[in-house]
Amino acid sequence: MAFESLTDKLQNVFKNLRSKGRLTEEDVKSALKEVKMALLEADVNFKVVKQFVKAVEERAIGQDVMNGLNPGQMVIKIVNEEMVNLMGSETTEIAMQPGKAITVIMMAGLQGAGKTTATAKIAGKLKLKGKKPLLVACDIYRPAAIEQLQINGKKQEVDVFSMGTDHKPAEIAKKAIAYAEKNGHNVVILDTAGRLHVDEDMMAELQEIKETVTVHQTLLVVDAMTGQDAVNVAKEFDEKVGVDGVILSKMDGDTRGGAALSIKAVTGKPILFVSMGEKLSDLEQFYPDRMASRILGM
């Protein structure tokens, strides 16, 4: 189904308004109603939408309509600017430890989000940059999780460290880092089991990993198709475990991906990558402005 683009909708809103020099409160309100619908349709969290629209409204009312821009375009321009503002206007890289020091990255997220796949994809990216990654099988629960990581590691030609399913993830992480030191690996990526943000025991398991070893970057992997609950997930992972960056997965679908905006609004953490497919090369840099347009359906 093709989306009627936001631009079209806003043009309709303003069709009957005569051209004006300034945006009145009424202009702005009727336009923002459409914006609100578009954001909700895109799965941006209801409360985030409300606050966002309020912020845009305050800025837009009384704005001069610039030459060549009708009121609709003016509102869109402000919405866009505010979105890019909110999502950050720059791309962010994974912060690596300086020199020869080992960077430890921990993947986290809900079940099936795309962590194991992203683990292997990031390894491939870092390998191209001359790093020597080690992948660590810390998912001791999901059937064949270790085999999955091993197969992906093999495809990427990077080493995979595992101790089977009878050791605690924190212990596996600790042994893996010792192994990395001995074998000249300078990046360690911990693939952890999927877990619910409300599962106290499983969240404690991630905390235990962080108490046992130094984790430099905790990356939250979020399915781009996630709905209203994305804020709860992101907030809980950030509060309980601490999140440094976000990876949006399954962006090769046709979802508008409003979760991206919700997560950024709630955690303030940068989105580092978008995952664009099942192939292990399908990982791309995140561009906030492109995401803004996608969410708005433009």
Partner: peptide
């Protein structure tokens, strides 16, 4: 369908 999924699930079902 993943119960966490938003509006895209409708498109998936279609």
């Amino acid at each position: 369908l993943d119960g966490t999924t938003g509006q895209n699930a409708l498109v998936q079902a279609r």
